Each structure stands twice: as structure tokens, then as C-alpha cells.
Computed example of a mutant assay.
Amino acid sequence: MIRADIRSKSFGPLQVLKNIRFEVKQGECLAILGPSGVGKSTLLRLVAGIDKGFEGSIQRPERIAFVFQEPTLLPWRSAIDNLLLVHEGLSREAAQAMLVRTGIADKADVYPGQMSLGQQRRLALARAFVGQPELLILDEPFVSLDDTTADQMLDLTADLLRDVRPAALLVTHDKREADRLATRMLQLSGKPASLGPVPQTFSGGRAYQSGRK
């Protein structure tokens, strides 16, 4: 479902990625770990086709969903309209069913600004999965959540991945998230950055708001 061969990605004279090759099949979730600033989000933009300025090739399916670090919802539309407006032909019944599945059925007519961060993150997941994506890209979707909410979101995401079975690419620098969701993982490191195995000593670098290390 995804085949990436990125020989080089540069911003002006600065090369940030080199010799990155991987494949992700349907039903697999590849976690890419690495510290902040190493180029993980740049890699995701290339895979998604948002940034086309690189040397190499990427094969991807047509139906792609992207869950960003921030929920990136339409603030002037209700929760259910955030699903209906993004997915042409989606029935209101199917949209409501996904809101039920993600635990925010009672928020269908509520605007994102009236929802907690955890509820907004649930809505972002609902918007991504309701379209039955062939490729799902997750860019640190659990950042800034407290322990309890993060654990609930990880469980929900794992369930949705099992049901929908997209080829999934997860970027994080919390190895515990990768352990919960990924079928395999690689580490992005170096300058310019390339992919390699995750060291046994890798412990990540992010704590949730509550301070869990």
C-alpha cells in the first residue's frame, strides 16, 4: 500500500533526509520514532504527497487520511458536519455511527471550540476513519493529553486500526505509543536523517501533561 524510496530531501542547501526506504502493507502499522526536529513531520508530508520537492519516488493509494498533532477541525461547523463536509457522499447515519464508535455521540451538534481537547482528538480520529482510508498517517496525535485520556485514545485507535485495516504510518517519540499500536518500528536519526533499527535503550523524550515519563 505504501512504497517509499526517498533518496534526498533538502531545504535549500540543507539536506534533512537521505536514503529512506520502507514499505507498509494493508493492516500494518509502521511507527517511526525519533527526537523532535529530526525530520519526522517532513517525512510524513512527503508520504502524504503534501510536499513533492524531493529526489526519489513514493507509491501511495488514493484514499488517504491524515491525523495531525493538532485536531485541525473546522471551528465554524458542528462535529457531525466536520465529517460530512470532508467525505462526499457520506450519509448522516454513517457519520453518527462513527461518532458513537469514538465516544462522542452526544457532541454531534456541538462546535469544536465547545469540546475538550480529548473530545476534539476523538473527532479528528472519527473524521479520519469514517472514510475507510487505505493509508492512515498519524503525526503524534496523542501529544498534550493527560495519562487517562491518552490511554483511552490509544485503545480507541488500536480498535479502529484492527477494524479498518489501513496501511498506517505513526510518527512519535514515545516508544510506548509505538508498542501499543505498531506492528513494527524504525528510528529516524542523524543529520541528514535516515532510518534504522530502534536501539534497545530508546526511551523517547515526551511526557504527558501530568508528567509521566
Rank of each mutant, 00 (worst) to 15 (best):
I2S: 03
R3N: 15
A4H: 12
A4Y: 12
S8N: 06
K9C: 12
K9P: 06
S10V: 10
F11E: 10
F11M: 14
G12E: 13
P13Q: 07
F22N: 04
E23Q: 14
E23K: 11
V24F: 03
G27C: 13
E28S: 01
L30M: 02
A31N: 04
I32M: 08
L33P: 05
G34S: 12
G34E: 12
G34P: 02
G37H: 00
S41H: 03
T42Y: 03
L44D: 04
V47M: 05
A48G: 07
I50R: 01
D51K: 02
K52Y: 01
F54R: 03
E55N: 05
E55R: 04
S57Y: 13
S57P: 10
I58G: 14
Q59P: 01
I64H: 00
F66R: 01
F68N: 07
E70Q: 11
L73F: 11
P75K: 11
W76Q: 10
I80Y: 10
L83S: 12
L83A: 10
L85S: 09
L90F: 02
K107A: 15
K107C: 15
D109R: 12
D109G: 15
D109A: 09
D109P: 08
V110P: 01
Q114G: 15
Q114F: 13
S116C: 08
G118T: 06
Q119G: 09
L123N: 08
A124Y: 07
A126N: 06
R127H: 08
F129K: 07
E134V: 09
L135S: 00
L136T: 01
T149Y: 06
A150G: 09
D151Y: 05
Q152H: 08
L156Y: 07
L156N: 11
L156P: 11
A158L: 10
L161Q: 06
L161V: 00
A168E: 05
L169T: 04
T172G: 13
T172M: 09
D174G: 01
K175Q: 14
R176Y: 06
D179L: 09
A182G: 05
T183V: 07
G190L: 13
K191M: 13
A193Y: 04
L195R: 13
G196D: 13
P197N: 12
P197H: 05
S203A: 13
R206I: 14
A207F: 00
Y208Q: 02
Y208S: 07
S210Q: 00
R212I: 00
K213Q: 00
